[in-house]
């Protein structure tokens, strides 16, 4: 995928060019592109003077960073204890069927990415599905399709 990397300099200018800025810069890049493109990692390594191997190590360590392009909307199915008991697996099956992808994958039209997460901290509303930034509680299998109606 081709990107416009002009915005990278704006991100780099926000922080001191030291290795301490690494995570902050990566977070901004993740926000800008929804993932960490290889070129961006290479530039980060150069600008902050951190070896590329260390940049890669940090990028792969944290779950909030992704190295593959994600869809416009990221759907997170919570499978924490409470959600698991209240049928998160059924929601996952339903969404996987509906979007024809497996958890962790992105639809071909780059609209949705399906993710399974451990706990989003909203156990009282279990089962929870997070679409983009919005939390949906007490989701029923029959309701799930509506959450992705953009498709």
């Amino acid at each position: 995928m081709k990107h416009n990397f002009d915005n990278l300099n704006l991100i780099f200018d926000k922080y001191p060019k030291t290795q301490e800025s690494l995570i902050a810069v990566l977070q901004d890049i993740q926000k800008e592109y929804q993932y960490l493109p290889c070129e961006a990692l290479e530039q980060t390594s150069e600008v902050l003077d951190v070896p590329l191997s260390k940049v890669f190590s940090v990028s792969t360590f944290y779950n909030s960073f992704s190295l593959t392009a994600k869809g416009d909307k990221v759907i997170k199915i919570c499978t924490g204890t409470a959600c698991h008991i209240r049928g998160a697996k059924l929601l996952q099956d339903q969404l996987e069927n509906h979007l024809s992808i497996k958890a962790g994958e992105t639809t071909e039209d780059m609209k949705f990415t399906l993710e399974v997460v451990a706990c989003v901290g909203a156990c009282a509303m279990a089962p929870v599905v997070v679409v983009g930034e919005k939390y949906h509680g007490s989701v029923k299998v029959s309701k799930v399709k509506k959450l992705v109606k953009a498709k």
């Binding site: 290889c38 990692l41 070896p51 590329l52 191997s53 940049v55 890669f56 190590s57 792969t60 360590f61």
Partner: peptide
Amino acid sequence: AISMVGRGHGKEVAPPL
């Protein structure tokens, strides 16, 4: 040139990217 990549059971030694 090389570093630890990933974490938990997926952790491995690998070159960047």
